[in-house]
Amino acid sequence: MLIADVSGATALLPAPLPLYAYVTNQGSETVSIVDLARMVTLDTIKVPGKPAGVALSPQLDQLYVTAPDAHDIAVIDLATGTVARRIPIGGGPLGIAVSPVNGLVYVADWYSRRLVEVDPKSGAITAEFEVGQSPSGIAITPDGKFALTADRESDTVSIVDVSHSPQSDPNPRATSIKVGSRPFGITLTGDRYAYTANVGSDDVSIVDVAKRAVIATVPVGRRPYAVALSQDRAFVSDQYGGTVTVFDLATNLKVATIPVGDHPEGIAYDGYGAVYVACWFDNTLVRIDAATLKVTGKVEVGDGPRAFGTFLGLYRPEGASAR
């Protein structure tokens, strides 16, 4: 696991252990800030507009949240716990990701074929790229050169050159790769493989990014939402199954099916041995030990947590404390 330094180069330092989770609660229109060591909610930030997608700045000091009903994204300053600005996107902003190299924010418009590039400092839309229909999850390669989208209505992954380099096409066309039915979440292992959770076909497609091809399809539970990747395993949230399906990254064979709660959705690995998953119907964030595959903690969050994206980080607002 790598973190980007401020200069834009990628430092060969291990990422520190995440201390907090930022959970988007779509029903209550809030973000819950959870202390992961104690599994308690420290603070709740109001974000009107049915927040769903979540991503962090490379320095982890800002949180970006999509608000599809407000047709914009909210930029939250994690030092103060306040919404610093809202940036209009139009349509239905849902998936969101950040370039680890330059901090540009990529937003998927659920109602169209748009991937929107935003400069969070100026609030300007700096580019728009055409991808498949209803782009959902987004992943950015570690070099910041390519954005990958899971296009839910096209059953494709789009790979688009977002580098703006002098050598690249000024109006790049996405490469489209057919995957399973209704891909939603997409997660990268470094720059090598992308894993999509396919809601319609109850499986995960594994895309070789360099070859632009699907190399394997792994059956999981019902209506998978997203995939978290540890060093050796994939953890897939099965919305209708109420489970997390775990499979081995070397063999693609199923290791376990872990009951976690009703409608598990956003899921992330902390880099050190824990997986966190938001259970939408239960209003909980659940912790799984990635080695023993046991549930080791649970905390109540707001109503309808989705936590769709990258939601583990290092900072909490000054003065936030357990209530």
């Binding site: 049915k50 849902l94 209803s134 809601v199 309808g304």
Partner: peptide, 15 residues
Amino acid sequence: ALPFSALAHGPSRQK
């Protein structure tokens, strides 16, 4: 103008 599939839906699930 393209039609959506039967699995298409709005952005916010309700309970």
